[in-house]
């Protein structure tokens, strides 16, 4: 493809920025507990569901991170959401079915999904 205008360049920039978005900072973060306890409780499936939901909705500026066991094993799979400038929200016993709800309600609309909420850290 030949670039013949600034508009062409902008288009390539937009798609290339998505490709490299995992490397940029200041985004909404989803952190999933991937300790042995988390994985045993189904955290891998939750993570895959998160990735699928994000790509389905075209949400590019969200980083998905894994973390180790934080000690609340009975509540696994744990999923934290941190929106820029907002406190860290922890959800517990998250299932694959909960994922679309958390993404739509919390990430997109900014409303906390109360029935899965187990903690809030400022």
């Amino acid at each position: 493809m030949k670039i013949t205008s600034l508009e062409d360049l902008r288009k390539i920039k937009a798609s290339a920025t998505d490709q490299t978005s995992a490397r940029s900072e200041g985004k909404t973060r989803i952190i999933i507990g991937l300790g042995t306890c988390g994985i045993a409780a189904g955290a891998r499936a939750v993570m895959e569901a998160v990735l699928e939901e994000l790509s389905k909705r075209g949400l590019k500026d969200v980083s998905v991170e894994g973390t180790g066991c934080i000690g609340m094993c009975q509540q696994e799979p744990l999923l934290d959401v941190i929106r820029p400038g907002e406190p860290r929200i922890t959800y517990g016993r998250v299932t694959v079915q909960d994922v679309p709800r958390i993404v739509t309600e919390h990430l997109v609309n900014g409303r906390i999904v109360e029935d899965r909420l187990i903690g809030r850290a400022d």
Partner: peptide
């Protein structure tokens, strides 16, 4: 920070914007 063999990663970091301008 970028893959030097991929021009798109350079463009993502404002590459060739200055030349366009």
């Amino acid at each position: 920070y970028i893959n030097p063999d991929n021009i798109e990663e350079y463009i993502a970091r404002d590459g060739y914007q200055a030349m366009g301008k």
